[in-house]
Amino acid sequence: MKGMEIAVCALIVSVVYDMQKGFQKKPFPYIVAGITIVLTGFLNVSIPLVLLLWILCGLLERRKQC
């Protein structure tokens, strides 16, 4: 089973890498990733709370662009 976990992880990383090539290079996703790592990894903020925060942030960002 450990071998399958590694293979699935590698497959997911490969798909994400291929998908990001077509994305526009904007700083916002990198800022979100960095803040999420700090909040969950170092400050022990609840993951569902962080997800709700980013959903709200995304909705506000989308409304601003419309």
Rank of each mutant, 00 (worst) to 15 (best):
V13K: 08
P48Y: 04
I47W: 05
P48R: 06
K25D: 06
S46R: 08
K25Q: 11
D18Q: 15
Q24L: 15
C57T: 13
V15N: 01
V16D: 01
L56T: 11
L51R: 03
P48T: 04
K64R: 12
V45F: 04
R63A: 14
M1Y: 05
M1P: 02
L53M: 12
L39E: 01
V13I: 13
C66M: 14
I12W: 00
K26R: 15
Q65P: 05
L59S: 08
C66H: 10
D18N: 13
I35H: 04
D18R: 12
T36I: 10
P27I: 14
Q65G: 04
S14K: 03
C66A: 14
L56R: 02
F42G: 02
I35L: 10
G22L: 08
L59R: 06
V13T: 11
C9A: 12
G58A: 15
L49C: 10
F42H: 10
T36F: 03
V45L: 10
L39S: 05
V38Y: 09
T40Y: 00
R62H: 12
P27W: 04
G34L: 13
I55K: 03
K2N: 08
S14D: 06
F42P: 01
R63G: 00
G34Q: 09
I6S: 08
I55T: 14
L56C: 07
L51V: 15
I47M: 07
G58L: 14
I12A: 08
R62T: 11
V45S: 01
V15E: 06
W54R: 01
V8N: 00
F28D: 06
T36S: 11
E5I: 12
G41M: 04
Q20C: 15
V45C: 07
L39D: 03
S46M: 00
E61M: 13
A10M: 11
L51T: 15
N44H: 09
V50A: 06
E5R: 12
G34R: 03
S46L: 02
P27V: 09
G58Y: 09
V32Q: 01
G34V: 02
L11S: 07
I31W: 04
Q24H: 13
G34F: 12
L49Q: 12
L49N: 13
M19C: 12
V45D: 01
Y17P: 00
I47C: 02
L60P: 07
C66L: 11
I31L: 14
G3C: 01
I31D: 03
V32R: 01
L51Q: 05
P48C: 09
M1C: 07
M19E: 08
A33N: 09
E5Y: 10
V13F: 05
K26F: 13
G22C: 08
M1F: 06
G34K: 02
G41E: 09
M4D: 07
T36N: 02
Y17I: 13
A10W: 00
Q24S: 14
L60W: 07
T36R: 01
R62M: 13
L59N: 09
V32W: 00
Q20I: 11
E5L: 11
F42C: 12
M1E: 08
G22I: 07
V38C: 07
L43V: 03
G41R: 01
T40N: 00
Q24A: 15
N44C: 10
I12S: 08
Q24D: 13
R62C: 11
I35P: 00
A33L: 15
T36C: 11
L59Y: 12
